[in-house]
Nucleic acid binder design. Sequence first.
DNA 1: CGTCCACAGGAATGACGGGCGG
DNA 2: CCGCCCGTCATTCCTGTGGACG
Length: 418
Amino acid sequence: MITLTTALAVIEEVFRRFKESRIFLCRDVLLPDYIPEALPHREEQLRKLALILAPALRGSKPSNVIVYGPTGTGKTVCVLLVLRKLVEESRGGVISLYVNCRQYDTSYRVLTELCRQLGLHVPNSGLSTGEVLRRFSDGIEEYGKVAIVVLDEVDVLVKRSGDAVLYHLTRLNTSLSKGKVSIIGISNDLRFTELLDPRVRSSLGEETIVFPPYNYAELCDILRERARLAFKPGVVSDSVISLCAAIAAREHGDARKALDLLRVAGEIAEREGCEQVTEEHVKKALVQLERDRVSELLRGMPFHMKLVLLAIYVATKRYPLTVTTGDVYSTYCEVCSCIGVTPLTQRRVSDILAQLELLGLVEAKVVNLGRYGRTRRVKLIVGDEHLLKALEEEPQLRPLISSLRQSLSSGVTSAVVK
DNA sequence: CGTCCACAGGAATGACGGGCGG
DNA sequence: CCGCCCGTCATTCCTGTGGACG
């Protein structure tokens, strides 16, 4: 038992340490939603975007834009920065609406969110999508000026719910007399335009801005600049920055990842009571970030999707070379019978596999094996330990996983069930 | 050179829980 | 309360397909 006084002392100690951080000046600078004043190595993209959007200042409708590039290349932050300036400069002549399509991943949700940002009240359900679109359109017309709609991660929306919203949004202007709508679609994946109706494609892609991945040196620049603002002097050495940059450069030049690494490394250093962030801390941060990512993805995931993941894990132990959809499905059925659950159909599992690929937990390439059919070659792309740990959160799977661990450590890889 | 595997992945449909307007 | 519409998960039935095998 802890007495009340010592408990209070503990809390005070935590707060005191926090206030007198030896490590951070301002941790927020390293958070993903921080918008910096300067964006090194993105001058060209900023200029191009500003040029495209500038007509809004004279009240005409700017071209629609597709902003394209891998994760962590500064797409979102660039767009937000330019828009913030534009709205400021226009003195009320322009508004910007921002929707992340991963968060609002259906036509209906996107439209209601847009309405909400216009200040209209729209119920979360109960209305037809057409009705919500009409309300949005009325709202824009009433506003009577230029509205710039940012659809972040628009490829996710298109893959999940098709291009119907995009079609309607791009066509909105024909039915408006005073209001105007421009669309900025941000995407990780340029291939998504192939899924679009040709009319939507040409309308949305009037302009394209490409964001290439950052290279090692550019990442170093970015990190150095942020570290200067985030940390106390002398806390972060150049070698720590180089290490973060090198890891992120390896992973497709993802600046967000680099900043996350630096921040989490700093947090670990602080928790350990160190005065400096070391390369050890960065390595620990890498492990922690990966673990967090996996358990975050697994949390709230449908039960059978977890079963499929487990089946993939078991199947890769069994057939180390090539795991096909068929292998996964039969293993999955075994897993189901193990815990007394009726399995889903193969069709459904095929969809789940595709979703797992979209989530980045699994690589599932379609391959043709000639006589031996057409299938997916399935590969886990997360660490085994992270996966098992996260799966163990599910009480029903715990016994199965612990027996799996045992049989694995004793070298028996074939007998997993019964 | 045609066959035929082992699935991919589209379309239609339905069950279900939930929110809203009336 | 009802009737309507929503999103989600799942099933059923279906057509399509690249290339190794015979």
